[in-house]
Write a protein that binds this DNA or RNA. Structure first.
Length: 263
DNA sequence: ATGGTAGCGGGGCTA
């Protein structure tokens, strides 16, 4: 089973590039982030025609997540459990879950973790608060002792080797010590980060800024990740980044990351 | 230090 995560930066702007990649890469399931569309305006028929069922958690203009699947899905749920620090509901569309039915059932969580800039400020507070709620959901997934994964745009550069120029990210919310510590707290519960488990070392990125020719200078960062429970990591066969499509016509600033699991 | 680009939506915010 091939499962991908892809921050598409706007579904309307990606109606050429996304179907092109789907036809080439043939993933069974895709977790999308930044659809930047309300549910009613998501062009589901484009993907249904390619054999996918479509589920969205949309929002006007910003954020928004979705699942495309060629395989049967069960128990689709929207929203990361918990509330904002003040007790209000979280109105931002950043979390979708479903169980995909292959040889083995696997619980899939698609996430768009808050960017958090500027630091300090309310957006950074929201990021760290959101990561505390993610920690709680991660504990529950581990306690289930079933194959499960959380994948998406984490907006976290885990280590210096995950940036071409780490020094220019030192004060950024994606690389601040508090952000990375919150990410490690989740990892250290016992999750396997699929790409690092398969490919060690520098030079592998999933995002290149549109500005200042970042792609042409390979000035990238690796911020799109798969975190797997032990029961899911046991099934892991491969994890790759489809970096080449960043150089295609009208690309997203992120590229797809995918895993192949024996499920 | 600054500005550089892209998306949404039709101005300014987000990244």
């Amino acid at each position: 089973m091939k499962i991908a995560t892809f921050n598409i930066n706007g579904i309307k702007a990606r109606l050429i590039a996304l179907p092109d990649w789907l036809k080439q890469a043939q993933p069974d399931v895709v977790l999308l982030q930044e659809i930047k569309s309300v549910d009613e305006n998501f062009p589901a028929e484009v993907f249904e025609d390619l054999g996918y069922q479509v589920h969205t958690q949309g929002q006007k203009s910003f954020n928004g997540v979705a699942i495309l699947s060629k395989l049967p899905l069960e128990d689709v749920t929207l929203g990361l459990p918990g509330t904002l620090a003040n007790g209000d509901p979280d109105e931002q569309a950043r979390w979708i879950e479903a169980t995909v039915i292959g040889k083995t059932a696997v619980r899939l969580c698609g996430l768009y973790l808050p960017n958090g800039n500027p630091v300090p400020g309310p957006k950074y507070d929201y990021k760290l608060d959101w990561m505390n709620r993610l920690l709680d959901r991660a504990k529950d997934l581990l306690n289930s002792e079933e194959p499960a994964l959380m994948a998406g745009d984490y907006n976290i550069i885990p280590q210096a080797e995950d940036a071409a120029h780490p020094d220019k990210w030192r004060e950024d919310a994606l690389f601040r010590p508090e952000s990375r510590a919150a990410y490690r707290r989740i990892l250290n519960l016992g999750f396997t980060e699929a790409f690092r488990a398969r490919t060690a070392g520098p030079g592998h990125y999933s995002f290149w800024d549109y500005q200042a020719g970042a792609w042409n200078r390979n000035d990238g960062i690796r911020i799109d990740h798969f975190l797997m429970t032990p029961q899911c990591a046991d099934l892991l066969r491969d994890c790759q980044i489809d970096a080449d499509i960043r150089g295609h016509e009208k690309p997203s600033d992120h590229v797809p990351v995918w895993v192949d699991i024996d499920a």
